[in-house]
Design a protein around this nucleic acid. Structure first.
Length: 625
DNA sequence: CTAGGGTTAG
């Protein structure tokens, strides 16, 4: 049956219902499907004409639209509430949840009490929404007191929202207290705890709850999987995912998105492709978020062409899709292409944000596009009205410094409106290392270490800078400082996926089942590239930009082990993909170039900063990294 | 022909 005709065009066309009650009903139904402000105004005037301006139900629907719809009008909603002689809890509840700040929400709540409107079980979840979002601890505690005072503690909805509130404020103990004393919990109580604890870094505590919970749905599974992904524990995410599959839980788009992020983190292309395939097989629609997650997966797994294909195929592209694609091109050193895509985005009149510009600047930095970088940096405020943040300055320092324009980089730091953080100064330090400016590097390096005393990379970089200048005593002193502070070097680790299985290698480690063959292969590999002119870069023990254990011979850096494993499991013409946690060192970079030529493989290495595509003895970064 | 509003996942 067709929907009943509702009237908001002109009085002449209005079909006249026989009774006012019928008229009222039709108007209320129509209001529920109202989609725009002009339409709403028509309904409002109609309500007034029907004498319904004091009708809670009717005006309540108006308020609901005004409060919740994106094109709504909160002040108007509050105004209407003020006109109601006997507002009911519903009207208050709707507005309590829609107000932007905890203070306003709390104020309206006290207004509600002053007008003798009794809160019901919908009231506390509503008011806790802005309070949780605004992390207002005092407001939340007051609400908690009222939940108890007014006897709503048996209400699971209210309790679940108190848990959410405490977790959003980082108050794990309070959240736990509510959770542990609940007479009845439901799946949402458990899932809220799991998700909240994970976001606060207590994934293991979350996992204990997950294992104990009486009933799990796909939301619970995904909350736990996402928890692992967010803290970088991809292996745990994969383990849990396969358990989820064996238990026959639906792989919906949320789980797919989480797992795609896990694949991105590990650079696990085959797994990622499988998830993408599953999304297609299941006919799951690509919303902008999911589409972007797939694009990100392909970018971070080294498959730019596939990322582009998905990007081009998206029916609904969000800003983040553009940002992601531009960032992907940047990571792969394709600066010109990134700038081109940015131009295309401008032509389509998509409004860029700070991330867009950051990615454009980073694209310029990775490709050495100095003048383009300067252009976008100086014009981002004027043309796009985007104020540069710390990261933008860092990017500029990186761009200029890497190109050897140390003075200009220094000038950027001096002129920036905030104090440079360790990231920005670290970029300058890196540039000093590349260009052998020991004096500036020493000065900057010491400041970076004080700003970021727990980051091993900073010490290593400064020590290496001293070592490269022959200042061994200074280098040793920096190392001593690092050791005294108990800062440990992050061990270099390389991952490679073969047949859907991810193998991890740590420098010098022999724990892999094929370790013997791999080490034999490394030796053969090095012999064969030596014939092509490879000379191990052993100039000084601490010579590399970063960071693999100097105690381990250069030859058994994790990257070389991973390449050897890749060679054992591929044939001539194949591609080997490796993901590293640190930056690729100079020696491994040189070796990889030659291996790609001698063994006829394309080797794609993702390091901490960017991608290197080695082929035919060359690297896509043109040694500019 | 007195409903309408609230919580967990990317």
């Amino acid at each position: 049956m067709a929907a009943p005709a509702v009237v908001f065009v002109s009085p002449a066309t209005v079909p006249r219902p026989s009774t006012t009650a019928e008229h009222r009903r039709a108007t209320l139904r129509g209001l529920d499907s109202c989609r725009s402000m002009p339409e709403l105004r028509q309904y409002h005037s109609q309500l007034i004409r029907l004498g319904l301006s004091e009708d809670n139900d009717a005006v309540g629907r108006l308020i609901k639209f005004l409060a919740l719809h994106p094109s709504g009008d909160l002040p108007y909603a509050l105004h209407l509430l003020g006109l109601l002689p006997r507002p009911d809890p519903f009207v208050f509840n709707t507005l309590l949840g829609a107000l932007p700040s905890p203070a306003e929400s709390l104020l309206l709540y006290s207004d509600m009490l002053l007008r003798y409107v009794a809160p019901n079980s919908f009231t506390f979840p509503s008011i806790l929404k802005p309070i949780s979002a605004g992390r207002d601890i005092d407001a939340g505690r007051q609400v908690h007191a009222h939940v108890l005072k007014l006897g709503f503690h048996p209400d699971v909805f209210s309790q679940n929202n108190l848990i959410r509130f405490y977790l959003s404020c980082g108050l794990t103990v309070d959240a736990r207290r509510v959770f542990d004393t609940m007479a009845r919990t439901d799946v949402v109580s458990w899932t809220t705890m799991i998700s909240g604890l994970s976001k606060l870094g207590s994934v293991d505590e979350a996992r204990e709850l997950f294992d104990r919970m009486p009933e799990r749905n796909s939301v619970s599974w995904n909350a736990m999987i996402a928890g692992y992904v967010q803290c970088g524990r991809f292996k745990n995410a994969f383990e849990l995912f396969s358990r989820m599959r064996t238990e026959g839980i639906e792989l919906n788009k949320f789980v797919a998105a989480s797992m795609l992020a896990a694949c991105s983190g590990m650079g696990a292309l085959e797994q990622g492709e499988w998830i993408h395939g599953h999304i297609e097989r299941m006919g799951i629609e690509l919303d902008p978020k999911l589409g972007t997650t797939i694009i990100d997966m392909y970018c971070k797994c080294g498959c730019l062409d596939k990322a582009f294909k998905v990007f081009r195929g998206l029916s609904c592209r969000g800003l983040s899709s553009w940002n992601c694609m531009i960032g992907g091109l940047a990571m792969h050193g394709l600066g010109k292409e990134a700038v081109k895509l940015f131009d295309e985005m401008m032509k389509e009149e998509v409004i860029p944000d700070d991330i867009t510009l950051l990615n454009v600047l980073s694209a310029c930095a990775h490709a050495g596009l100095i003048s383009e970088g300067r252009h976008y940096f100086y014009y981002m405020v004027r043309e796009f009205r985007i104020e540069p943040k710390m990261e933008h300055f860092g990017c500029m320092v990186d761009l200029l410094g890497r190109a050897g324009l140390l003075d200009e980089a220094k000038q950027v730091i001096q002129e920036m409106p905030m104090d440079a953080d360790a990231g920005v100064l670290g970029a300058l330090l890196g540039a000093c290392k590349i260009h052998g400016n020991v004096d500036l590097g020493e000065q900057i390096g010491r400041r970076v270490i004080e700003l970021d005393p727990l980051n091993s990379g900073r010490y290593v970089l400064l020590a290496n800078l001293f070592a490269s200048a022959g200042r061994w005593d200074d280098a040793a002193e920096v190392r001593r400082l690092m050791n005294d502070r108990g800062v440990n070097k992050e061990p270099g680790c390389s991952m490679i996926e073969m047949g859907g299985v991810v193998s991890e290698f740590i420098a010098g480690s022999k724990s892999h089942p094929q370790a013997r063959e791999i080490y034999v292969m490394v030796d053969e590999m090095l012999e064969r590239i030596k014939a092509e002119g490879y000379a191990p870069d052993t100039s000084g023990v601490l010579h590399d930009i970063d960071e693999e254990e100097k105690e381990n011979p250069l030859y058994y850096h994790s990257e070389k082990l991973a390449i050897a494993f890749g060679l054992l499991n591929t044939r001539s013409g194949d591609t080997i993909r490796i993901t590293k946690n640190l930056r690729v060192c100079r020696d491994c970079h040189a070796a990889s170039k030659l291996v790609s030529k001698v063994f006829d493989r394309e080797i794609i290495v993702r390091d901490r900063n960017r991608f290197h595509h080695f082929m035919g003895g060359e690297c896509s970064c043109r040694d500019y990294w």
